[in-house]
Amino acid sequence: MDRVPILKIGPVLLVSIQVDMQDQVALQLQEDLGERIVATGAKGVIIDITGLDIVDSFVGRTLSTIASISRVLDAETIVVGMRPAVAITLVELGLSLNGIRTALNVERGMELLSRSTEPDSPDEFDLDLDDLSETTSP
C-alpha cells in the first residue's frame, strides 16, 4: 500500500498528497502524522492538496480529524491548494470542513503558520495571545 510522505521543514511538517488515495491510505496518513508531530515537536502542519482532483466526504472528514488531532498535540494544521472545482463540489456536497484553516498555496500557508505560532520575544506576547484565541476557536 502507498504511503503519503511527510516532510519536515523547520518547525513545520509538509504533506503533499499527490495520488488518488484509497481510504486506507488516508487513515494511515492520519496515524503517521500524529506520530511525526510528537516525534519532531512540530508546531505546524501544512497539507497540500493541489494534487487531489476530488475531495469526498471521507477525505474531508479525515482532514478534519487530522486538524483536531494536531490541535490536541499543539500543532496548527493548514490545508492549502484546494482546486476551484473541488471547492465548488464541497460546497454543493454540504461539507464545510469545520475547524480547518485553509490557504491558497504553500507559501501563504507558511505565512499563516508563522503568524499564529508562539513568538520568541516576550514583548509580542499580548498580540499573539489574541491571535491564538482567534485561531483556536473555529
Binding site: 490545508v79 484546494m82 476551484p84 454543493e92 491558497l104
Partner: peptide, 12 residues
C-alpha cells in the same frame, strides 16, 4: 453565497 463559501475553503 456558494462562491464565498468555496473561496473560503480555498483560503481566500
Amino acid at each position: 453565497l456558494k462562491t464565498v463559501m468555496a473561496a473560503r475553503l480555498m483560503g481566500a
